[in-house]
C-alpha cells in the first residue's frame, strides 16, 4: 500500500515538472529508494531508474490520470464537503483511490467540469469535459450555466488571464460571496451582496458557483 502511494506521489511530481513546467524541488524528483524506481521501470512508467528520471508515454498517461483524480478529489472535498485548509490535500490522497473506473468523470460532471483545483492548479480534462455532459444533479456550475433565480455561493474562479482575475477581484467577486443570477440574456446579470453586476459570457464562464439548496 505504501509502495502504491509512493508510486503515485512520484508520478504527480514528475507530471508537475514535465507536464506543467512547474518548479518541483530536485530532491522530490529523484528519490533514493531503488525498490520504488525498479518497480516503476518494471511497470513501464519510467524509462530508466537513473537520473534524470523520465516518464514513459504510458507513465505520462498514468500520471495525468492520477493528477486528475487527485485534484477532482480536492475539489469534491472543498466544494461539496466543505473541507478547509491542509486537510484537503491529506484527505484527497486517500480519496483519489476510490475514483477509478469512470467514477472520476461522474464526479467531474456533478462539479460542473472544474478546470482547476482549490490551490489553482489545472485539472487535466477528461472525456466528460469534451462532451460537456450535464446531469440533473449539479452541485457546482459555472455562472453562465446557472438558471436565473438559483441562489449560490462563489466556489472558485478560473480566470484564464491574470488581467481578468484582477477585474474580478476589483469587483469583489471572490470565493465565499453569495450570488444569484438575475438574467442570462443578452448578457449575464447577477446579484452579489448588495450590488449587481453585468458581465459577458467569457467572464460568466470563469465564475464557479456552489449551488445552495433552499
Amino acid at each position: 500500500m505504501d509502495l502504491e502511494r509512493n508510486v503515485e506521489h512520484l508520478l504527480v511530481d514528475l507530471w508537475g515538472a514535465e507536464g506543467e513546467g512547474r518548479t518541483v524541488p530536485e530532491s522530490k524528483r529523484t528519490p533514493r529508494e531503488p525498490a520504488l524506481l525498479a518497480e516503476m521501470v518494471t511497470r513501464g512508467l519510467l524509462s530508466s531508474a537513473r537520473a534524470p528520471l523520465q516518464l514513459t508515454e504510458h507513465g505520462t498517461l498514468c500520471a495525468r490520470e492520477v493528477v486528475r483524480r487527485h485534484r477532482l478529489a480536492e475539489r469534491l472535498l472543498a466544494d461539496v464537503l466543505d473541507v478547509r485548509g491542509s486537510l484537503i490535500t491529506e484527505s484527497a490522497c486517500q480519496f483519489e483511490h476510490i475514483l477509478h473506473q469512470g467514477l472520476d468523470d461522474r464526479i467531474c460532471t456533478i462539479l460542473g467540469h472544474p478546470k482547476s483545483c482549490p490551490h489553482g492548479y489545472a485539472i487535466p480534462p477528461g472525456e466528460c469535459c469534451a462532451r460537456a455532459e450535464a446531469t440533473g444533479v449539479r452541485v457546482v456550475s459555472s455562472l453562465a450555466d446557472l438558471p436565473p433565480g438559483t441562489p449560490g455561493t462563489i466556489a472558485y474562479l478560473h480566470a484564464a488571464e491574470s488581467d481578468r482575475l484582477k477585474k474580478l477581484m476589483a469587483m469583489g467577486c471572490l470565493p465565499g460571496q453569495k450570488v444569484r443570477v438575475i438574467r442570462n440574456f443578452p448578457s449575464y446579470v447577477f446579484q452579489m451582496g448588495f450590488s449587481q453586476f453585468a458581465v459577458d459570457r467569457d467572464i460568466a464562464n470563469e465564475i464557479f458557483v456552489r449551488i445552495s439548496r433552499s
Binding site: K167, L168, S195, Q196, F197, A198, V199, D200, D202, I203
Partner: peptide
C-alpha cells in the same frame, strides 16, 4: 475586449 460593469441602482 471583455465586458464587466457594476449596475448601480
Amino acid at each position: 475586449a471583455s465586458f464587466y460593469m457594476e449596475l448601480p441602482p
